[in-house]
Amino acid sequence: MLSIPSDIWQDMIEHARALDPHECCGILAGTDDHVTMQYRITNILARMHDEADLAHFDQAKLSDLKNLTPEERADVAFQMDAQEMSLAQKDIRQKGMTLKAFYHSHTFSPARPSLTDVTIAMEFENYRERLNIPEPYHVIISLEDKERPVIRAYRIQESQATEIPVQRRSLPV
């Protein structure tokens, strides 16, 4: 279970809307099941003009991306800025919190991890334990219906995505 306070829930939707049609991405942190902090991370795809920067993507996705302009690539994919991701991880550690989830938006498809999402999440699994990072959930914000954004969370293990319950927590008055 992942419990997200309503202000962060709302900010993730605003983040997705602000970047639409580009995908947005970020990190959620907290303790136990409770998210208490959010970090917006830059999706750097729109500014990556060098094909070597796309090395992360699998062959199928890569041939897709190569046919697009950098701006168009950010509509169908995201790449977190590594430095911002690392700074967020450091801040989370210093505050005694735990990285709970990575989030990103799908601006015109459902809130389900794509094959590329799963492949890259599994790649992260390969070194996560060695770097002392707890298993993250993967949260997706779908703007497929612009009026009704959908947020879902998943566990990605052994190349399988399993939905986990996600709760919008009201803030104490």
Binding site: V76, F78, T107
Partner: peptide
Amino acid sequence: VSIVPAIAGGTHG
């Protein structure tokens, strides 16, 4: 030394 790509993803495929 570990070379670690930051998290990424894609919509289709």
